[in-house]
Amino acid sequence: MIRVGFLDNMQFRLALAVQVIGNMIYLVLMYFLWKAIFDSSPVDTINGMTFEDTMIYLVLASAILEFIEMWIVWGVGRDVQSGQIVVDLLRPVNYRTNMFFTCFGGTIVNLIATFIPTMIVVYFVAGRAYALSWNLLWFFISLILSILINYYINFFTATITFYTESVWGINVAREVVVGVLSGATIPLAFFPDAFRKVAEILPFQGICNSPLTLLLGDGMAPSEVISILGVQLFWVVALSVVSGLFFKVSVRRITVNGG
């Protein structure tokens, strides 16, 4: 099933090229924006982050959000509207597991095709942007957890479409919340303190902020690494249980028009 997802995504090479060019333009614009912001600031470092740190953080954060996107909400929403979902539910494979692995294939393609090249480019462009040591290992472990967190948030949102039969609003709400609270739009370090403390408890920061903190923080104490990964793991488990229960309840009352 991973292979199917893989092949599915490989078809769109032109799309990938457009995406890469588009991202580059986007990054250049982002560069100038933050440069202007930092140039207008009386100090060079804000909450421990210089302009270079901020750029590395934001580039990698948007790269993570990009490669992690699974389009599940749209997929499930479409299946609910068309009635296709009934066929999938009747299959002798678990619906959630099936969906996860299909999506996981696509995510792995994106990881190899877009994210890792981005990471390598960032490393050289920014002049040894991050250390090449244990932090890489923690980063990839954390990244897998963030894929899982993101998947469960997506799946939870997709389940809501069983009730609403509409996709746009609910999916956009998810995108906005994840975009802001994961730190992808503005690094969490720039948030006002009270706001940041709240954001740090929520699961969304586990998508971008946790892996990036582990990647960029050189020589972190083992206890810190464990606490960051621990919080992520807690949310993986919690979200898995919650979204699983929600799905079970929702499937019973699914209504399909003329399916």
Binding site: T164, E165, S166, W168, G169, I170, N171, V172, A173, V176
Partner: peptide, 8 residues
Amino acid sequence: DFFLSMLG
């Protein structure tokens, strides 16, 4: 859909 789109 109307209300959720508004919310979004």
